[in-house]
Each structure stands twice: as C-alpha cells, then as structure tokens.
C-alpha cells in the first residue's frame, strides 16, 4: 500500500502542479450547527467552478450536513495569483445532540432520532478531519448568536494548538441581530470577516483573505 500510495500521491502532486501554481490546500469549513457552512461552501464552489454543483443541501434545520463533503481543486484567483483549495464542508460541531430539537421542525420522531444519530456521527467525523486532514480552517459563526460558547472556544483552541491558519467569518450580516463586533471581541487574536453567504455580501473580502491565508 505504501508504494502505491506514494506513487499515487506523487502523481497527483505532479498533476496539481501542472494546473496550478501550488499544491491544493485542504480547507475545512468548521463551525457550530446552522452557522451557514454549507451555504458558504456552495457559494465558493458556485463562484469558482464551471459546473457550480452544490456541495450539499442547505437547510434552516440544524445538522442538515451530517457527513463531511469535499470539493477538490477549487481555484480562486486574486490579484493575478491562483490559489487552489479543496473545500471540506463539515457537519456542525456541538457537544449535545438531541432529537427533540428536530421535532420542532415538524419531523417524525423516528426521523429525528435517526438525524440525531447521524449528526453525532457527523461531529465525530468533523473532529477527525480536523485532526488528520485539513491544512487550514474557515471558521463560520452566525453573527446573530453569542460566540462565547464551549464549542467555539474548544475548536478554536484546537485549531490554534495545531498551528493551522484560521479565518473567522461572521456570517448572516444581512440579518438584523447581527453583531460582527461581538465575534471580534470573542476572538481578537484572529481576523474576522463579515459576510452573508446567503446574499453574497462582502464575498470579495472573503476571497482576498482566503488567498492570503491559505495561498
């Protein structure tokens, strides 16, 4: 396996250098449930790929994404430079998953229980990806909610401990209750960029920073 794997990786590395200036960076899109990670992923993919297929379905119901999804070789051009990234849309990370939460969204109990189990598996997968398979992190937060949570603190702490480059995105600035400053106050050590992934607001600044941080 070692020989084959090495051969394959070297081939893919050679191939990637043919089409882009640098090796593709695998960027994990992390954050709590319902922060807009999939919406952002879909926007990035639609903005920078020809086919523009969605990474995954978006939903207002938490834990819509229960498996990590990856889109590879997304080339983002900024200032004449091309940055190639693999976008990994991860399930929302949380410390508790409760099926009763889904019942409020007109879901049958059995479906809610199954969703709960899958969401838990998804969190495990997301944490595993964070450990093994990402070169950088885009941390998405819903700017209408309090960022001072155990999950956010822990995840940012883990990311910092791994010395991974991280970009914090304050999403949903199109909503009234949005407060970007609250997020800046929570994580002053990191760059925080406001955006609305849904509306496409301020995406230019987002891409600038992606190119800068992960290029």
């Amino acid at each position: 396996m070692g020989l084959l794997t090495g051969l394959r990786s070297s081939i893919s590395r050679a191939a990637s250098t043919l089409f882009s200036d640098e090796e593709s960076k695998r960027i994990g899109i992390y954050g709590p449930p319902n922060a807009g990670k999939t919406t952002l992923s879909n926007r990035i993919v639609r903005d920078w790929t020809e086919h523009g297929d969605a990474v995954g379905p978006e939903s207002h119901i938490p834990h819509e994404t229960r498996r990590a999804r990856r889109r590879e070789n997304i080339e983002i051009e900024r200032d004449g430079k091309t940055v190639t990234i693999d976008v990994v849309d991860t399930p929302g990370v949380t410390t508790k998953v409760d099926y009763t939460e889904f019942l409020e969204h007109d879901m049958e109990k059995e479906d809610a229980v199954r969703r709960s189990r899958e969401a838990t598996e998804g969190v495990a997968e997301a944490m595993h990806w964070l450990r093994e398979d990402v070169d950088g992190v885009i941390y998405v937060l819903d700017s209408t909610t309090d960022p001072f949570t155990q999950v956010n603190t822990m995840l940012i702490g883990i990311i910092e401990s791994q010395d991974l480059p991280v970009l914090i995105l304050a999403n949903k600035i199109d909503l009234e209750d949005s407060s970007v400053q609250r997020i800046r106050n929570a994580f002053p050590q990191h760059e925080t960029i406001p955006l609305s992934a849904l509306e496409g607001d301020n995406m230019d600044e987002v891409y600038d920073n992606i190119a800068e941080y992960f290029g």
Binding site: T95, V97, Y99, V113, T120, L130, I158
Partner: peptide, 14 residues
C-alpha cells in the same frame, strides 16, 4: 437516551 447524545470533543479529536 435514544436519540440524545453528549459528545466530548477533545476525546473525539484525540
């Protein structure tokens, strides 16, 4: 309980 989970993120990560 069934459908209710508590996750230790650090453990999952480690």
């Amino acid at each position: 309980e069934r459908g209710q989970y508590e996750l230790n993120l650090m453990e999952l990560y480690d």
